[in-house]
Write a protein that binds this DNA or RNA. Sequence first.
DNA 1: TTGACGGCAGAACATTCGTTCTGTACTGTG
DNA 2: CACAGTACAGAACGAATGTTCTGCCGTCAA
Lengths: 194, 194
Amino acid sequence: MKPILDPSYLDKLQDYYAEHKVIPSYSVLATLWGISAKSWVAECVNRFREGGFLDHTPDRQLKPGPRFFERKLATATVRAGLPNPALDDGYDMVTIDDYLVRMPSKTTLVRVRGDSMIDAGIHEGDLLVIEQQPNANIGDIVVAIVDDEFTVKYLDREKGQWILKPGNMAYPVIRPQGKLEIFGVMAGLIRKTR
Amino acid sequence: MKPILDPSYLDKLQDYYAEHKVIPSYSVLATLWGISAKSWVAECVNRFREGGFLDHTPDRQLKPGPRFFERKLATATVRAGLPNPALDDGYDMVTIDDYLVRMPSKTTLVRVRGDSMIDAGIHEGDLLVIEQQPNANIGDIVVAIVDDEFTVKYLDREKGQWILKPGNMAYPVIRPQGKLEIFGVMAGLIRKTR
DNA sequence: TTGACGGCAGAACATTCGTTCTGTACTGTG
DNA sequence: CACAGTACAGAACGAATGTTCTGCCGTCAA
């Protein structure tokens, strides 16, 4: 595996991706990198592919690889002696959306009303990222449909029955008669404070 | 402008994009959508383009449009017997990034360590959306720089001095000697639970 | 019954894509 | 100096791409 040539190549590609959210074709890459030979673009792409920065879809289309969104340590420090203000887990965030949403078609946002889950750090007005699915596991925070309204609660089981436990001792446990209708499972939380 | 045909087309495209981070070619779109005519794929793409869900790069490559990353926001109440997401009614569309980030150039994400702000619903591992600015108001949740480390606290004032109050009684109030260095003000919160 | 229309299939086509192969200039090494 | 290796340029080529046009079929209104 040959070394990667010009580090700015990756920078330019990442900038292009940040703007267009797409990997360009070889000829566009050529102008982007200031190269005039497609063969050399292909060579560079191969090295990025071996390095894990680029990859191929099952249909052989070029796409970002596993390491494409890594942040470089060089840009980490803002001021002398300070750690990176952003994410310290080694990954740069392309978009918040991408961080929270795994399956767009099954994902819905639900606004929280009331403070019945305050112990779980879920406040009134927060948006919950919900992955829609009809069943869940014990301990999951779920959005259930009780009396034609959304309710956010912990899912638990008691005497062979599904129950909904609030995250706030001032509220009662809900023991639905009949079938419990689950709208989805909480996958994330969004709060806007400004 | 013709109406958009099958809403599931957009779902499938968004799921594909969430997995591969790339818009596929027309022939791949054809199999993805179960269509066997590229001409019809082109027609569908055009409608998505007119709707703002797809777009073109300056090099005429297909890319996600401004509305591509919109998510469904369920309205508060569910109508009797109709909690089904398949219907277009009852949903607002929200882009998570636009919702949280007002000024991208001044916005940073900071990961929370510790539970000193647990009373404010800020948990360990959460990401804070920070708008960088050197000063803030009383009551704001700020990221300050104390002993070369980031600290998230309430900003308050005591005897003409700025102080930092935790959202957890187990932690002490911080009374910095000299100038208090503020990194930014909390504008939002992101939590991933799955 | 007819005609218009929308949804879709299929083929034809120029353009563009990525690959491969050959060639050249520079650079470091012994 | 010879030699190998690296960094590119350029051309050639089949495969794939996106566009366009023609045609079928079901639906619905007149």
